[in-house]
Nucleic acid binder design. Structure first.
Lengths: 230, 230
DNA sequence: CATTTATGATAGCATTACTATTATATTTGC
DNA sequence: GCAAATATAATAGTAATGCTATCATAAATG
């Protein structure tokens, strides 16, 4: 069992960091506190100098792990997508019916994330908030093509690919599986943000998680299948 | 007719600027060149100093029109959503059937934008690219609640509200019209970006605009209606 | 215990995002 | 046609940012 876990240990593309932050106490502290600080002040106002003060360490030391704050953001988002894939892989294990697997995958992709404590130095609740608010800044840049070549978005693409495969299992003729899943993921993130800050762009419904329900319903209708629990 | 146009003239919330850029040649030049420059170098690398050099004017002069580059971005995105609402208002005029109106609205919201030259100092083609790549930076900020209170997102919210109303005309029991439309708009923008830079997240189909087709199909299926042209 | 490696402290530099001041055009109202 | 108001330009300055470089010291390793 331990082995299974180890083989699933979240391996972020090693080109996003200079020195692997998992490899030292300082590295883990950098990751842990960067999540707190970005969540608190936002990515724009976040600086390595402030982070250094926060962890009673040094700006220059942080630069030995990450080339820039953008690379650190890329590290955090990559880690998040790896983690999401791991959640889905485990969550769908031993479920044979593709409809049920799809339903569960959608839930896992769109639900509100709570702290689960599986990874000591990572607060999944705050990381989810960061991914919602800041992840577009990791790819909506002038360097996107370069970064893509270096494989920085591989985790996200792989995740989208996996869920698309379930769709194709259910309906092999559906033409837009990748579009549907990537729209769903980004859309659910946006909706969580809107629900908090721009509620006129959403539709809250008492007693249900409208974002999950909307996502399930829209997906199954789009591919012309029936959602198992409806 | 002129009057109709005038009453439709694109009125951006006057709190996003200090002095209305439409009111002077310099102001229009600032807007025109900021679109070129942001499109060229990206919003992060865009500065008022560079813009001043570009238009052979002065950094300080630009600050008399816009408090900061964020406010300028807010101006550009607000203008864009006003323009989109105007396109839709005209595009749907005299179409009685709500299904046809919805189909046309989706097309207008998700299609690729081309230069149309109706507004001398605004290049709609480039502005659309900016909105796709940078608009999330205008609301995914720590100041979103403050900015929302000041009405900076009113145009966007109004647009979503209008199209949602068409959905409710077709199916008054549909529970998530705002979610559907805002997901659609943001989703289509993301897809245009992905198609160019991260194609594994989309599904290109030869001979059709897959993004428009996907959007129409998903919307009509979600609300349980039939798309007129299918 | 000698040497490599990791961290800390300090300094420095070009650029950014502004603000302030003063000078010069340009418009306008009479 | 000219004074007064207004808009723009030129220049300088400031605190903060996003780094890089250097040197000293601490910790791990062989």
């Amino acid at each position: 069992m331990q082995d299974l876990f180890t083989s699933f240990s979240l391996q972020v593309n090693n080109r996003v960091y200079i020195k692997n932050p998992e490899s030292s106490a300082l590295g883990r502290k950098i990751v842990e506190s960067s999540i707190n600080l970005i969540d608190e002040v936002g990515f724009e106002a976040f600086t390595f100098r402030k982070l250094g003060l926060e962890i009673h360490s040094n700006e220059a030391s942080i630069y030995r792990y990450f080339e820039s704050k953008y690379k650190l953001l890329l590290y955090l988002t990559s880690w998040y997508w790896c983690w999401m894939e791991y959640r889905i892989a485990f969550g769908l294990a031993n479920i044979p019916a593709p409809e049920e697997r799809l339903e569960k995958a959608i839930k896992l992709l769109t639900e509100n994330i709570e702290l689960d404590g599986s990874f000591e130095h990572i607060n999944e609740y705050k990381l989810n908030k960061i991914v919602i608010a800041e992840s577009s800044k990791s790819y909506m840049t002038k360097e996107v093509d370069q970064n893509n070549k270096e494989g920085f978005f591989a985790g996200y693409k792989q995740l989208v690919g996996r869920v698309s495969d379930i769709i194709l299992e259910i309906n092999p003729t559906y033409k837009y599986p990748h579009m549907l899943i990537s729209t769903l993921i980004e859309g659910a993130h946006h909706q969580r943000f809107f629900a908090q800050h721009l509620p006129r762009l959403t539709d809250a419904v008492n007693g249900e998680d409208a974002i999950i329900e909307f996502s399930k319903e829209a997906t199954f209708k789009a591919i012309g299948a029936k959602c198992p629990t409806k």
